[in-house]
Amino acid sequence: MKLSARNILNGTVTAVETGHVTTHVKIDIGGTIVTASITNEAAEDLALKVGDAACAVIKSSDVIVGKA
């Protein structure tokens, strides 16, 4: 797979939580969990399961940082 995005975080799927419209996919990237919200259709197409190798691809022009 070739992508133009440079922020590709490889890891392992730890949870797939399907809702009415979206599926939350949790990926462990070396002790840190990244959660992605994708459409149910995309989740079905990918056939994601716990234990699968997966990657979180982040492409954004804005990153917002906050401090409590």
Rank of each mutant, 00 (worst) to 15 (best):
M1F: 09
M1C: 09
K2Y: 09
L3A: 12
A5P: 03
R6D: 11
R6G: 14
R6C: 11
N7M: 09
N7S: 15
I8R: 06
I8Q: 06
L9I: 10
L9Q: 11
N10M: 12
G11W: 14
T12W: 11
T12Y: 09
V13K: 07
A15R: 13
A15T: 04
V16M: 14
V16F: 13
E17P: 03
T18I: 09
T18Y: 07
H20G: 08
V21W: 00
V21E: 00
T22W: 07
T23A: 12
V25A: 13
V25H: 09
K26N: 11
I27E: 08
I27R: 07
I29R: 03
G30A: 06
G30H: 07
G31Q: 14
T32C: 05
T32Y: 06
V34M: 14
V34F: 13
S37C: 09
S37L: 12
S37W: 00
S37H: 00
I38F: 07
T39F: 00
N40Y: 03
E41T: 10
A43L: 03
A43Y: 00
A43M: 03
A43F: 02
E44Q: 11
L46C: 08
A47Q: 09
A47D: 13
A47H: 06
L48Q: 04
K49D: 10
K49M: 12
G51P: 01
A53V: 15
A54W: 01
A54R: 01
A54E: 02
A54L: 01
C55L: 04
C55N: 10
A56P: 03
V57Y: 02
V57W: 05
K59Q: 08
K59T: 06
S61R: 15
D62L: 15
V63L: 11
I64T: 04
V65L: 12
G66M: 05
G66D: 04
G66I: 03
K67Q: 12
K67W: 13
K67A: 10
A68W: 10
A68T: 10
A68M: 13
